[in-house]
Design a protein around this nucleic acid. Structure first.
Length: 295
DNA sequence: TACCCGTGGGT
DNA sequence: TACCCAAGGGT
């Protein structure tokens, strides 16, 4: 029965899969690693153009490692969570220095790289190297919550039971295809907001649908205000540094946010995080970048 | 563990 | 319009 679920989802993937550049033969482990980090909490549509630009500009880890970290932040653009750009740059340097320039192939080695957690390590080992791992992202968690457990949404963080279930579903043959197929189902059909059950290949065996799609009754799932937060302030400050082509006077940063206390706190945070660099003359820049560096 | 970390599009 | 949330990770 688990086999029936897997087979139906993998067959569906065969006809419904999107043609994404990092899935093509020849994307390479580096391209796949870059895509996975860019896709952390960020929709595919926004990642696509940035990934293309990165791959053209930095086709190998060594190419990125040869640049200052600030250039990675600059070309991250508006993807959000810019520390991921620093993480990728740090990955490139570790890969270049310690792995002979080749993206490591084992889960354990990948897991040691900065910004690579359980999901990303499993994803890269699977998609780049064909290995067999349980790949448990938000899409998979939602599909399994519904199809197997009969609940509309998974818990906030993965539970041991979820991992056990995900591992029990890893097929003996072609585990990466199962992983990408069930992720794709969650992304295109079994969506968080308005699931398209009419298009679902496992609608007839989905516990949640068979139970009449009962409404979620667990604890409140989120609640994030953004306006007025330090995050928004940091974003404003970093946008100025990104778009400038040289050191930025403090006044230009001050103009982005009215509350001076919060502004200073945010700027200090950016510096602490390595996303901004103060210069002796009182100006600021992206870390390691030089004046007039080409865009 | 709960919170922090950006951004923009869909509903 | 306001809110939800998107291939998470670090602390």
């Amino acid at each position: 029965m688990a086999g029936g679920l897997r087979e139906a989802i993998v067959d569906w993937y065969g006809v419904a899969a999107r043609d994404l550049p990092w899935r093509r033969v020849g994307a390479g482990a580096w391209g796949i690693l870059v895509s996975e980090i860019m896709l952390q909490q960020t929709p595919v549509a926004r990642v696509l153009p940035v990934w293309e630009e990165w791959m053209e500009r930095w086709p190998t880890p060594a190419a990125l490692a040869g640049e200052p970290p600030g250039e990675a932040v600059r070309h991250w653009g508006r993807l959000g969570y810019p520390r991921r750009a620093l993480n990728l740059h740090a990955c490139a340097r570790v890969i270049t220095d310690d792995h002979g320039g080749r993206v490591p192939s084992t889960y354990a080695e990948l897991r040691e790289l900065p910004g690579i957690g359980d999901y990303t390590a499993a994803a890269v080992a699977s998609f780049a190297y064909g290995q067999s791992h349980a790949v448990l992202d938000t899409n998979v968690r939602r599909v399994l919550a519904r199809a197997v457990r009969g609940e509309e949404f998974p818990s906030k963080t993965p539970t041991a039971a979820e991992r056990t279930l995900a591992e029990s579903l890893v097929p003996a043959l072609d585990a990466p295809r199962w992983a990408v197929a069930v992720m794709e189902l969650g992304a295109l059909v079994c969506t968080a907001r308005a699931p398209r059950c009419a298009l679902c290949p496992v609608a007839d065996q989905c516990a949640w649908r068979l139970a009449g799609r009962p409404a979620y009754d667990g604890p409140a799932r989120r609640g994030q205000t953004y306006a007025g937060t330090d995050r928004q302030c940091r974003g404003r400050l970093l946008a100025v540094l990104r778009e400038a082509h040289g050191p930025v006077p403090k006044a230009a940063l001050d103009a982005t946010w009215s509350d001076p206390l919060q502004r200073e706190r945010a700027l200090d945070g950016l510096i602490t995080d390595g996303l901004a660099e103060p210069l002796p003359d009182g100006t600021y820049r992206l870390p390691g970048t030089t004046t007039g560096s080409p865009s």
